[in-house]
Nucleic acid binder design. Structure first.
Length: 257
DNA sequence: TTCAATGTTTAGAC
DNA sequence: GGTCTAAACATTGA
C-alpha cells in the first residue's frame, strides 16, 4: 500500500466512494483507496464504541486485533481502525490525491447506476461491448456499470424478468430498459435494507443488513419463487453462482408487431 | 476426507 | 480485440 509512514500525522479530510472502492482523502496530498473484495471488513473502535462495516466473520465481535487483522490505523483520540480480511483479497492503496481518477482501479469504471448520466441507452451501449456473453455476467463488469456484484446482478435480472443466460446481443430495447430499471430497483432495495450482510452491525445495538431476506433469487435455490412458486434454479455463469426463476425469467421476448 | 462453494478482480490463454 | 479460466486465499458445508 505504499509507505505507511507517509500517512503518519495526517488528518482525514473526507471519505467517499468510487464503485466498490472506498476513498479516504488525507492532508498532505495523500489518498487511501480501500477494496474489501470478498471478505474484507473495517472496524472502528474507541473504548466501548464500535462500528463495523463489511463482510461478516465469526471473530468480528471479539477482541481486536483478530487473527484476520491486516492493517491498523491509530488516531490521535485513541480510537483505532482495523482493516480485517480473512481471505486476503482486499487491498489498501496509497496514491497522490491528484492521481485518484487515473488510478488503474478507478480509471476504467463505468457509470454510477444511481446517478444522472446512467441511462438505459448508456447501459445498452456498454453491455453491447460483450455481445456474446450472458447478460448477467456483463452486468457485473465494473467497466459496464459501477458497483453491481453477484447478488445484485442476479436480482436485477429477476426484476427485469430476463433469463441471466441470454446473450447480450439477443436483448431488445424493451429488455435493456427493463434491465436498467431492474438494476436500480435492486440497488435501492439493497440500500434500504442496509445491505446484504446478515451480521453487518452498524452500532452497539446491531443494525443489520437484511437485504437477503428480501432477495427474490440470490441464495434461494430449490426454494419457491416469491412471485410464481416455481423452484428457483442455480447454475454457474462466468464461474459465479447464478440464481433465477425458470418461469418468471424467460428467454427472448418478441415485440408484438 | 475431499471437493466445491463463497458479496471480487485480474492476468494469461486461446 | 473478445471470451473464458484460473488464481490470489481461508473457511465452511455437503
Amino acid at each position: 500500500m505504499g509507505d505507511p509512514k507517509k500517512a503518519e500525522g495526517k488528518l482525514v479530510l473526507n471519505i467517499g466512494r468510487k464503485a466498490k472502492i472506498l476513498v479516504i482523502n488525507l492532508t498532505g496530498d495523500i489518498t487511501l483507496l480501500f477494496h474489501l473484495k470478498m471478505s474484507g471488513q473495517l472496524i472502528w473502535m474507541k473504548t466501548k464504541d464500535k462500528i463495523i462495516g463489511g463482510h461478516p466473520t465469526a471473530d468480528m465481535q471479539g477482541k481486536m486485533p483478530s487473527a484476520h487483522t491486516r492493517v491498523i490505523f491509530s488516531f490521535s483520540d485513541g480510537s483505532k481502525l482495523f482493516f480485517n480480511d480473512q481471505r486476503k483479497f482486499g487491498w489498501i492503496r496509497m496514491v497522490n490525491s491528484g492521481q485518484v481518477a487515473g488510478d488503474s482501479s478507478i480509471n476504467n469504471l463505468g457509470p454510477e447506476p444511481l446517478k444522472k448520466g446512467f441511462t438505459w441507452q448508456v447501459l445498452k451501449q456498454n453491455l453491447l461491448r460483450h455481445k456474446s456473453m450472458p447478460v448477467k455476467v456483463v452486468v457485473m463488469d465494473q467497466s459496464v456499470v459501477s458497483g453491481v456484484g453477484n447478488i445484485y446482478s442476479n436480482e436485477a435480472c429477476f426484476n427485469a424478468k430476463i433469463d441471466p443466460r441470454l446473450k447480450v446481443a439477443s436483448l431488445n430495447d424493451k429488455q435493456f430498459q427493463s434491465l436498467y430499471q431492474g438494476i436500480i430497483k435492486a440497488l435501492k432495495e439493497g440500500i434500504k435494507r442496509g445491505g446484504s450482510t446478515r451480521a453487518h452491525f452498524v452500532d452497539a445495538q446491531g443494525h443489520k443488513g437484511y437485504f437477503l431476506d428480501y432477495a427474490f433469487v440470490y441464495g434461494r435455490d430449490f426454494k419457491a419463487c416469491k412471485v410464481c412458486g416455481t423452484k428457483i434454479k442455480k447454475i454457474q455463469l462466468g464461474g459465479r453462482g447464478t440464481y433465477f426463476c425458470p418461469n418468471c425469467q424467460k428467454g427472448v421476448i418478441r415485440d408484438r408487431t
